[in-house]
Structure formats: C-alpha cells, structure tokens
Simulated assay, not measured.
Amino acid sequence: MTPDSTADGARTPAHPCTATFAAWMAGTADGGAIALHAAKLSTPDLSPQLTAVYQVFLHTQRFTVKKNLDSMLRSDPTGVDVEDHPSIRRDKRRLYVLQRELQRACLTATLLNLPVARRAGFILIEVLRFSEDEVARILGTSSSAVHTAVGRARRDLTTYLESRCEHMDPRNPCHCETRLGIALERGFIQWPDRDDLPGDEPLVSRAVCLDAERLYAKLPSPLPAPRGSGPVCR
C-alpha cells in the first residue's frame, strides 16, 4: 500500500519526514503507513503534512497499540532457552540483532503510553529535531504549550524508565539480554524485517543515562532506514 492519498483518489507523496513521524507516532512502520493513508495528504509541503498526521492520531486511538510492558515481560528470565529459539538458531549475530530490536520495541512501546500531544511534541523535538516554534505551528498551539508538553513527556519517560531499564542505569533489573527469551516466547518481538540493526556485538549498557530523551535521540526509527541514507528531517 502506498502510504499517502487524497480524498479524490489522487496521491500526494508523503515527505520522508512525514512518514518517519507517522511511524514513530504509531510505533510501527505498518501502523504509520495506515495513519498516513487516513491523513489524506493533499499537499507536498512538510508542515501541513505533519499537521494532518497529528490530527489523525489526536482524534482516534486505533493507530496506537498500547502495551503493558511490566505485565508482558515479567517472568523468570532464565525459563526460556534463547539461543535455541528458531529466530536465533545459535547464531550470535542474530542474537545481538534481536537484542537491539527488543530495546527498540520496549522504548517505543513506552513512548506510546504518552498522551498524543506530549508524544507528538517529544518526537518532533527530541527525535526529529524541530524547534518549539515549528512544532507549535504543526500542532496548532503556542510555543509555551509545546515547551510544557515536551517537558512533561521527558519527565514521564524518565520516571518510568529510570528504575527499570538498563539503558538508564546498568544496575536496573530489566536487561535486554535476560528479557529476550520472554519477549520472543510471548510474541512481543520477532525477527525484524530490516537490515539496519547491528549484530556485531552484544547490547550491554555500561553507563548511567540521566535523561530519557538521550536514549530516544539514538534509537532506531520504527521505519527502517534505507542503506546509506542520512537524517530525513534535520
């Protein structure tokens, strides 16, 4: 399916940044494509496209699949033989890729629990690097409202992750290595349909991260990046 359309059936291509924003808002590439189709893009200009996608998420919840990570991944992490799983087959490279896919999926799922306006502002500013004034125009609000919403998003993400996630603090209980078996067994992740996740070494956190936004700034997008491509927004 082409991820863009207009009401009369003609198609307006989505700007790459619009497609990336939609994927982040939905948490998956497929969800982002469906939201883009619902947005009925009618102009090639970036800012109106982003506004149209934002309005789709603001007025319906069906494009956002929320998950309770504490419930889904809470189990005895030693109870699953990870390396014999069909997605790994004792291949260390596949194991390391799946660790990164789990990190990406967990942090993305955490982001989806934010209210729509906070999530949109956080993605546009912290991930896609727009300014507060630009985001205010996209979201149809004031710069001060954007500043407040994004500040609350940072606080909510940090509060949730700082006592759980190894990528905030290596001493935290939730580690990608030990939760991977449960995530595969319960269908939270599967082998990713992408080739941009590195598998050269295990994913191990070694440093404390004080702010959640630093994690998201480096996190792979739900929309796989084409080979050799650079940032699509900033």
Rank of each mutant, 00 (worst) to 15 (best):
L98V: 10
Q99V: 12
Q99C: 02
Q99H: 11
R100T: 00
R100N: 06
R100I: 00
R100P: 00
R100S: 00
L102N: 01
L102R: 07
Q103R: 12
Q103F: 05
R104H: 11
R104I: 05
A105S: 15
C106G: 10
L107T: 13
L107V: 13
T110V: 15
T110Q: 03
L112D: 02
N113Q: 12
P115E: 09
P115H: 07
P115R: 06
P115K: 09
V116H: 12
V116D: 08
A117L: 08
A117W: 02
A117H: 12
R118T: 07
R118W: 06
A120W: 11
A120I: 02
G121A: 03
G121I: 02
F122N: 12
F122Q: 06
F122P: 06
F122I: 10
F122R: 08
I123P: 13
I123N: 11
I123K: 04
I123G: 00
I125V: 10
E126H: 15
E126V: 14
E126L: 14
V127W: 02
L128A: 02
L128E: 12
L128M: 15
R129P: 06
R129G: 10
R129M: 15
R129V: 15
F130D: 08
F130A: 15
F130R: 11
F130C: 09
F130G: 04
S131M: 07
E132T: 15
D133G: 14
D133I: 12
E134D: 09
E134R: 09
V135H: 13
R137Q: 09
R137V: 14
R137C: 06
I138E: 08
L139V: 04
L139G: 13
L139D: 03
G140E: 12
T141V: 09
T141R: 00
T141Y: 09
S142P: 05
S142K: 04
S142G: 01
S142R: 04
S143F: 01
S143L: 12
S143E: 10
S144I: 15
S144D: 10
S144E: 14
V146P: 03
V146T: 00
H147R: 14
H147N: 15
H147P: 02
T148M: 00
A149H: 06
A149T: 08
A149W: 14
A149N: 15
G151D: 04
R152A: 13
R152T: 01
A153V: 03
A153T: 11
R154N: 05
R154V: 10
R154P: 01
R155Y: 05
R155W: 14
R155L: 02
R155S: 07
L157M: 03
L157S: 07
T158W: 00
T158N: 00
T158D: 00
T159S: 00
T159Y: 08
T159A: 05
Y160Q: 05
Y160M: 04
L161S: 05
E162R: 15
E162S: 11
S163W: 03
S163C: 13
R164I: 11
R164K: 13
R164Y: 09
C165A: 07
E166N: 03
E166I: 03
E166D: 07
H167V: 06
H167E: 06
D169T: 02
D169M: 11
P170R: 02
P170N: 02
R171I: 04
R171M: 13
R171K: 07
N172F: 01
N172P: 05
N172E: 04
C174N: 14
C174G: 03
H175K: 12
H175I: 01
